[in-house]
Nucleic acid binder design. Sequence first.
DNA 1: TAAGGCCTGCTC
DNA 2: GAGCAGGCCTTA
Length: 270
Amino acid sequence: MIRRELAPLICGKRFAEPVLLYERAVRYPEAAVFSRRLPGRSISGVERQGKYLLFRLDRGLLLGHLRMTGKLLYCPPGASLDNPTAPQRDLRLKLPFAGGDALHFYDMRKFGGFWLLENPEEHCPAGFSLLGPDWEELDESTFLTLLRERPRARIKPLLLDQRFTAGLGNIYTDESLFRSGIHPCRRVSTLDRAESARLYRTIREVLARGIACGGTTTRDYRDARGAAGSFQNFLTVYGRKGAPCPRCGRPIERTVVAGRGTHLCPHCQR
DNA sequence: TAAGGCCTGCTC
DNA sequence: GAGCAGGCCTTA
């Protein structure tokens, strides 16, 4: 969503001098080198790989990861600094363009960051080079094959593992497992072919619905224009602890699986 | 495979 | 005041 919004706004733009307000918002190279190298480079394309944003430059590559609370907002030339969706307190990095417009990176929790790489192999975050196939391109037979390679894994932690497949986070995983009737702690080896195929199709549907809704704004998420998503209005289990299961009416439960809050209906998910 | 750490602000 | 968060890395 963020990539789709940003691409037409910033393709072809040339970077000016960045302004770093929080040291660790730039992960590589060190701040002074980043600030010296970026100006003058222009954006030839904006891509997404898993949860990374990838800005192709005329020389090198700018990688960004928003983690949990990061927002990357496009500011047109002369735009007001006040943005209702992101307090100035959370502004971590300004990436101005030569034309006076800019990208502003806000991140309350300071988890997100940027990498400026001369080539993709150099100093990229460890997870980036290990990303599994992205859900935008993953076909059913590949998914079934990958599942067969991990029979002992529990399904929810496996789906969240970006080395297995890239792009699923906690919300979309819980929603997909509920809609597939699969318990998050099931071992992959206990899923029959029909269940695995149903899971694949359900994940595709949930992701498509999420994208069509402009994402999920439970609290922080905003797209590149600061707009909220609406998929939260269609959530069946995530964040609905105690509410009635839409299928059987029993209360939705919240547990912890692999350290992540996990929402499920133990009656409907086996 | 799991726990802890990074961080801050909000809800319970 | 504790618990929690659309993530991921390091360490055990």
